[in-house]
C-alpha cells in the first residue's frame, strides 16, 4: 500500500506537467514563451517574502533559544501525566506551529530517546504528519502579497492546531495504547 502510494506520488508531478504541455500543444499556445513570462515572477515573490520570513523566524528562534519552551514544559507536566501523554512529546506540541525544521529535529530526538517503536514516537509522528508550521505558512503567503493586517487568520490556524493536538492524543491512545 505504502509503496504503491509512494510510487504514485512520483508520477503525479510529471503527469500534471505533461497534461499542461499537451493541452498547450493542442491549443497552439506558445508554451516556452509563456513559461518564461510566468517564471520571472518567482524571483519577485521570493524577494518579497524575505522581511516577513525574517520577522517570524527570529521570533520563533529566540523563543526556543531562551528556554521558554522548557519552562512551559515543566509547568504543563502534571496535566500531561493525567492524560497519559509522554513528557518527551511536549516539545513537539509546543514547537509544531512555530518551526518546521525544528519539529523534524525534535522528532529525531524523540526516536533517539524512546526508541522507534515507542508510544512517544508514534504520537510525535502523528502530530508532525497531521499539521503544518502555522507561523511559516502565514508569513510566506501573506508576505508575498504584502498583507499586514492578518485579522483572524493566525488565531483560526492556532485554534485548529490545538484541536489537532487534542485529536492526535485521543486517536493515538485509541490506536496505539
Amino acid at each position: 500500500m505504502i509503496n504503491f502510494l509512494n510510487s504514485l506520488s512520483v508520477y503525479i508531478l510529471p503527469f500534471i506537467i505533461a497534461i499542461i504541455l499537451i493541452h498547450a500543444l493542442y491549443k497552439k499556445t506558445p508554451a516556452y514563451e509563456e513559461f518564461t513570462i510566468g517564471a520571472k515572477e518567482g524571483f519577485n515573490i521570493a524577494i518579497k517574502i524575505i522581511p516577513y520570513l525574517i520577522a517570524i523566524m527570529v521570533c520563533t528562534a529566540v523563543l526556543r533559544a531562551s528556554g521558554a519552551i522548557e519552562m512551559a514544559q515543566n509547568l504543563l507536566s502534571p496535566i500531561l501525566n493525567f492524560f497519559k501523554i509522554p513528557i518527551e512529546t511536549t516539545i513537539i506540541m509546543l514547537t509544531r506551529s512555530l518551526s518546521g525544521s525544528a519539529t523534524l529535529g525534535v522528532l529525531a530526538d524523540i526516536i533517539n530517546q524512546t526508541g522507534v517503536n515507542s508510544y512517544a514516537t508514534k504520537l510525535a509522528a502523528v502530530i508532525t504528519g497531521s499539521s503544518e508550521t502555522t507561523f511559516y505558512v502565514a508569513s510566506v503567503y501573506f508576505g508575498a502579497i504584502g498583507i499586514k493586517k492578518f485579522r483572524h487568520a493566525l488565531l483560526a490556524g492556532i485554534l485548529a492546531d490545538i484541536v489537532g493536538l487534542i485529536a492526535a492524543v485521543w486517536v493515538c491512545s485509541v490506536f496505539f495504547l
Partner: peptide, 22 residues
C-alpha cells in the same frame, strides 16, 4: 529559505502561466 524557493517557485509559476494561457 527564501532564496532556495526561487527555483521551484519560478518553475511552477511558469507551468501555471502556460496552463492559464492555453
Amino acid at each position: 529559505i527564501a532564496l532556495s524557493l526561487i527555483g521551484i517557485m519560478a518553475f511552477w509559476l511558469g507551468m501555471v502561466n502556460i496552463a492559464k494561457k492555453s
